[in-house]
Amino acid sequence: MFKVFKVGDFLILAIFSVILFISLSIYLNLPSGDILKIDYQNQTIKYSLNQNKKIDLENLSIEINMGKARIRHSNCKNQYCVMQGWISHINQSIICVPNLFKMTISQNMDAHDSTNY
């Protein structure tokens, strides 16, 4: 086994492991967002995540369900965007390339612990 692997191989493995763990730790610590930002047909629309809402667009249907969002239906061929499921953490995105659609979770500009409504 040690004849197959050389010093450089271990080094690369170690570097990628570090990158993987750092990425994972950042991902696991992302706070929940409270805004869904949709970029579609040259327009940006924002929705509060603190609600239950179904949004029907031309080629897609979006669902917001109390703090999280997903694409319910899309007319694209591969359905990758639908399969991605729910997103709820800040900076998480779902992109549907055939429909030139993007939605991202974000937070209101000012840092705060919670929102009164």
């Binding site: 705060h112 919670s114 409504y117």
Partner: peptide, 27 residues
């Protein structure tokens, strides 16, 4: 939307945003 603050984080109070009644995405 009703919020109760029990204690506080280190060196500060809990801070809450009040939603804009005319735009749910704004504070």
């Amino acid at each position: 939307g009703n919020i109760y603050a029990h204690g506080n984080p280190k060196n500060r109070f809990w801070e809450v945003a009040i939603q804009d009644p005319f735009d749910q995405t704004k504070i």
